[in-house]
Amino acid sequence: MKLKQLEGLLGSLQQFETPKIELEQYPTGPHIASRLLYTIPSFSIIQAENSFGDVSDKVVADFGCGCGTLGLAAGLLGAEHVIGFDIDAESIEIASLNADELELDMDFIQCDIRNLRLSDRAIDTVVMNPPFGTRKKGADMDFLSMALKVASGAVYSLHKTTTRDHIKRTALREYNASSAEVLSELRFDVPQLYKFHKKKEVDVAVDLWRFVPNNNRPKHL
């Protein structure tokens, strides 16, 4: 599937009506943040599939799925089984409607990623756009740590470019990744959604990462 096609399909999906600041949920308007909401997810999933074959016929987990965009994109590209995880019931409700809209079967679990317990390596590929940790420090690292525990194939994740060195070091040294590679540096504007945003728009650079978990560790539940 081509980028434009996938973006078009995702563009019809519902997004947050009342975004929750503490969860770093970003909504959309017709003119804003479409890069973050459609282009970047589409681009990420297409790379995962076309360059690495990490999507079709795989078990894919979407951590912090929000309205389900990444997971649904994976479903559209042929993932066999997609599970979305989110702490927020309203997000999952929207994501579930979006799955119906696209006629995709996607499972959802409401949970806090930090205390999720999945069998090691049960998931082939984890895709995620974690909270960047601007409101809750280290939130994205909690997601990454868990993703590298449950994935057997690869983890795709978006992180702020400013944290690149820290992420690489931590993934390789502490989270048992066997490789950590930035596939692309992407830019998008975060519109002024919340009162704490002082500027009208903030230009943010994020990295699309691909991590490979180390599969030589002992298996236990």
Partner: peptide
Amino acid sequence: RLLTHNMLSSN
């Protein structure tokens, strides 16, 4: 689905 159930533990 039961595939999801099969990987999930009490947390």
